[in-house]
Design a protein around this nucleic acid. Structure first.
Lengths: 160, 160
DNA sequence: TATTAAATAGGATTCATTCCTATTTGTCAA
DNA sequence: TTGACAAATAGGAATGAATCCTATTTAATA
């Protein structure tokens, strides 16, 4: 990201915070700046380790709480996962997710067809739909190559 | 479920276990029988409380481990969620999910249009896709009605 | 610059999940 | 049908993630 693009982004961030009466603290700015550089849906702990490099005194709780606050005001998304720690997605544009069931990696992808899906009519009566996302599960290139994947390792992502 | 349907289901269950060299234990049978009656994507703990009524000595670990094993061999699904305890879905037919962002409820729904979505071509090269699911997020009827949604729904109330 | 409520640090607590190990049990072959 | 053996279990311990608690600090406002 270029410098002017980044400062645009930060201006937007500050506006967004003010709109929701959130104070502009150095911690929040640091977390946000680092987050938008991340491509891999980081966890709170990953963000903690990134941010503490420049902010040695920051606490894990602050990072986690701040990320949840960002999610509340619509600055980031919480990724849907099948267990494991919560992951945050700074990309708020329309996109969809592929989950590798072997290594747990989550890959973003874009599709006009998926974006344009209609919500079934009968749904509108009982539910108000804010977001819509297609989630694919399968194997990524790397994991597909691996030999000796037995069927039962399908759920390996749950193991340590 | 009728009795013959249930015993069909159990026959299938036993076959499925044998196919994966899993022993047919009373615990596994009890857990499976209860699980397929559940409509609400139960957690391991919920299943533990259901099963222990007829099986007072069963341990939480056995229930949890068994549910994960079922997921590994494709007898059940692990539901994708944005945090909270892991939830299991005994419905292996094609279906899609609505998540209420206020109360956390997950509602199944069916849609031919969603089932028939194609996977983008460029995807086939790099990924092997096993399952595809559309996930909607929003408010259920009950939550939509509620006044005074608290702080964490700030983002929802302010959306255009 | 003084006031005040919001936000933070850091430790404690809670909750969910996984691990450990002695014991039990399903399966299979004799 | 029985004996051997690996798989599975119970129950408690340990780990991991998220949240809570409280004294202290600080951003925003007048």
């Amino acid at each position: 990201m270029q410098n002017d693009k980044l400062s645009d982004c930060l201006d937007q961030f500050i506006k967004h915070c003010k709109k929701f009466d959130l104070r502009i603290t150095p911690q929040r700015c640091a977390i946000y700046k680092k987050l938008i550089k991340e491509e891999n849906h980081p966890t709170a702990e990953e963000m903690f380790n990134i941010v503490r490099k420049e902010f040695p005194n920051i606490s894990y709780d602050t990072v986690n709480r701040t990320l949840l606050t960002f999610a509340e005001i619509g600055l980031v998304d919480v990724v849907s996962t099948k267990g494991g720690p919560r992951r945050f997605d700074p990309d708020m544009d329309k996109h969809h997710h592929f989950h590798c069931i072997h290594c747990g990696k989550i890959v973003d992808f874009y599709s006009d067809e998926f974006d344009n899906l209609g919500i079934p009519d009968y749904f509108q009566d009982d539910f108000t739909v804010y977001t819509k996302r297609v989630v694919l599960n399968g194997l990524c290139k790397k994991c597909r190559k691996k030999k000796g994947l037995k069927d039962r390792n399908i759920a390996i992502q749950n193991k340590k």
